[in-house]
Design a protein around this nucleic acid. Structure first.
Lengths: 190, 190
DNA sequence: TACTTTTCTTAACCTACATCAACTTCCTCC
DNA sequence: GGAGGAAGTTGATGTAGGTTAAGAAAAGTA
């Protein structure tokens, strides 16, 4: 099993002894999500955090007009969950779909809580992880309020340089908050 | 010193012994921010988390056209900081101004880190706090992408029922992401 | 290979919201 | 308590980006 990636991801913020690594990896489950399959659907209760080891996920919501809005992409080495649902254990609003055949490692909420108690360093790790997500989310909020679509696209390119080439551009359009048509027009002018 | 409020705020998520309470409150500093005064300015390095015990703060950024965008309000019993700057200890982008004469309790980043080591429960507390902020921030992102200004205003009213009456409406307009002029027109039609 | 489905492009027209400007009402502070 | 600034209103006009639609290109499927 390829746990190197997730252990390195964690090692960026906390140091684990071999024993602790074993406890942690023992809690993980592997799952494959084929292209276009859903890992999580609108209305589900989110019971796991997912860590992507291959492929790419996208998290999106669907508004009352049926339009999709991409909240986040999770390429290799990223975490994904419906935070609202994971925390509250109520039905969530997020859909998570694989953009290509994707491998994830699952950590259940239950195990995550056991981890917090047995190895408090994990509380630190996830706090830092969530803090960084919050900063990114707030920055995106500010960008949405103060930048034009073109500027937001440039930001996107800087922040996800790898994704620009692999992602269908309608997904990028949705992420920066414009229609595919407008996005296409915008790009042809650049 | 009125530490009851902040201790109750914390007691919502973790239980502290009297000794731990003493350690914690010993780390706090009181500060008064008069109406229209700034607690934090664009470019400052944020060295504290602030907890509001009286009054109300607003956090906002200023874009390249000089337009202000409100990121958050912090009435009594709320926390405020420039998360980006607090985490990275680099110059931030947030301005924090008192909307009325305001009392805050300050916890320095240094003390916060000492707290994490001495009383690991605080790591839990702040993780939960940040998780909730993240959920709120993501919800606001989704709302910005999928709702009209009017719907966002209704959401705002539900989420901050007390603030609607005390806040100048240009601040609400800025929070929901429209100009004061449009906001005024919108309200007269409701 | 051909067939289907999805994605991308282009064009004409539309709308939610912005901008500018002038006026009124409300605070606030001397 | 009154003067001056800030906040709110209202109207005319402007624009970024949406909608609809239809065809072209690309990618998945068999």
């Amino acid at each position: 099993m390829p746990f190197t990636l997730i252990l390195n991801n964690i090692a960026k913020h906390i140091h684990l002894t071999p024993d602790e690594q074993a406890i942690f990896t023992g809690m993980l489950r592997t799952q494959t999500v084929k292209r276009k399959q859903f890992w999580l659907s609108d209305g589900d209760i989110c019971k796991h955090s997912a860590f992507v080891t291959a492929g790419c996920l996208r998290g999106f919501t669907v508004d009352k007009n049926g339009i999709e809005h991409v909240l986040s992409f999770a390429p290799v080495d990223w975490w994904m969950a419906d935070m609202y649902s994971l925390i509250s254990q109520k039905p969530g609003i997020l859909n998570v779909e694989a953009l290509e055949d994707t491998q994830i490692l699952l950590l259940s909420k239950t195990n995550q809580e056991i981890l917090y108690k047995q190895i408090p360093k994990f509380e630190h790790f996830f706090r830092v992880l969530v803090e960084n997500s919050l900063v990114a989310s707030q920055q995106r909020l500010i960008d949405g309020l103060s930048l034009t679509a073109e500027e937001r696209y440039n930001n996107f390119c800087k922040r996800y340089p790898t994704l620009i080439y692999t992602l269908p551009q309608k997904q990028i359009a949705s992420y920066i908050g414009v229609t595919p048509e407008f996005f296409s027009r915008m790009r042809s002018k650049m």
